[in-house]
Design a protein around this nucleic acid. Structure first.
Lengths: 207, 207
DNA sequence: GGGCATACTAAGCGGTTGCTTAGGTTCTAA
DNA sequence: TTAGAACCTAAGCAACCGCTTAGTATGCCC
């Protein structure tokens, strides 16, 4: 329901710069992402997207096949980004690895809340073929988190009766940041990441 | 995308029995709740709701002013139910109180996933007036959880540098159950409640 | 300058949307 | 037996949807 405009656009424009060209196509995609995050995919019209991008309704179809294609591009690249953020951390210490991973993943869901909301809440609107592509990326995310939990349990620093359930809960906690985070709130994305890293370590660490 | 039909309908019908009469109005509301939970408010048509309830499209408007009115009834009663579940637990021991509250709240979000999804993910589709009503109920939910955290911190069984942040994280964890829970999964709502109660106590308890 | 690809707009088409209207059926009670 | 309330349907209206078509402006190579 809220939009920050200038500052948020600049952040997203930079974020999508290497993935989407030319400029007009990227502007259209960012406009779509903001509209989808704000009102939801089905409540957003192609005229709405075009207006946000400062172009005519027909301009959408020069760069994209359909409204659903626009959603798929955002969802696919968004999922790839969040997977990259999750897997980027490498640390020999299981506790440090978990803490840094959770901090980065939770932070991403706050900082790139616009993209994250589309990634997490609009998968049901994808076509069956596109849905399958995205589900595969989500499977990788779950597997990776489960491995971090299991590494900690194996080295006896973590304690979890249900590895998969614990991994799911950790991911769930981070993902839900995209739902409640507001850019005008008093916690910065970095602070949220640190708070969550601390909470998760408490949750998992063997006493 | 999945629907269980018979069994789920019976559960919801019983759940809404005292709040919505007559029968036809309740059938319509349950049909709407299932459709909204399944596909989202904006992707659901009034013809779709009527068909699920086994009636003609015009029948919707005998019992409800508009499609948005249907959403408001579900959202309002749903919020009241989840607040009641949260506040029902009374226990002199802060740890037991938190454990039982989290277990009940998380369990509710699994068991009544259909209602919970509408409650948690469709607030943005309410009219400004109806949105305000629901936001007030949400404020009460947050306040209540913060008080439970603060009671534990005061009696020195919990440890949390940021009371409000911790309460938000606990609620967030429970709420997100509505997103990932599947009735055909291997964990029962009760098991999820117990798992989550354990995780939250570990998160908050002073070592 | 001429030929041509790229990027865009104005206008609008067929289909769907939320909702209304006019009318019919069933039930209760005097 | 009949008046009237409650409940439901068939048909359809105005507005809006995603998307297409026909045509225009701009830049680039020869």
């Amino acid at each position: 329901m809220t939009s920050l405009g200038e500052g948020e656009f600049a952040l997203l424009d930079q974020s999508w710069h290497d993935a989407i060209t030319p400029d007009a196509a990227r502007r259209m995609l960012i406009a779509a992402a903001q509209a989808f995050a704000d009102k939801g995919y089905h409540a957003t019209t192609t005229r709405d997207i075009a207006a946000r991008a400062g172009m005519s309704p027909a301009a959408v179809y020069i760069h994209y096949r359909s409204k659903e294609d626009l959603l798929f591009q955002i969802s696919k690249v968004g999922h790839e980004r969040s997977l990259k953020v999750l897997t980027a951390v490498q640390d020999p210490n299981p506790k440090d690895r978990m803490a840094r991973t959770v901090a980065a993943f939770a932070r991403w869901h706050a900082e790139f809340r616009t993209t994250a909301r589309v990634v997490q809440y609009e998968l049901g609107s994808l076509s069956p073929e596109h849905h399958a592509v995205v589900v595969e990326l989500r499977r990788k995310i779950e597997t990776h988190m489960r491995h971090i939990v299991e590494e900690g349990v194996r080295t006896e620093v973590f304690e979890a009766p249900d590895h998969k359930g614990a991994a799911l809960a950790v991911l769930s906690l981070c993902i839900d940041v995209a739902r409640w985070y507001r850019p005008d709130g008093k916690r910065t994305p970095e602070e949220i990441g640190n708070l969550y890293a601390d909470l998760v370590l408490r949750m998992l660490t063997k006493p």
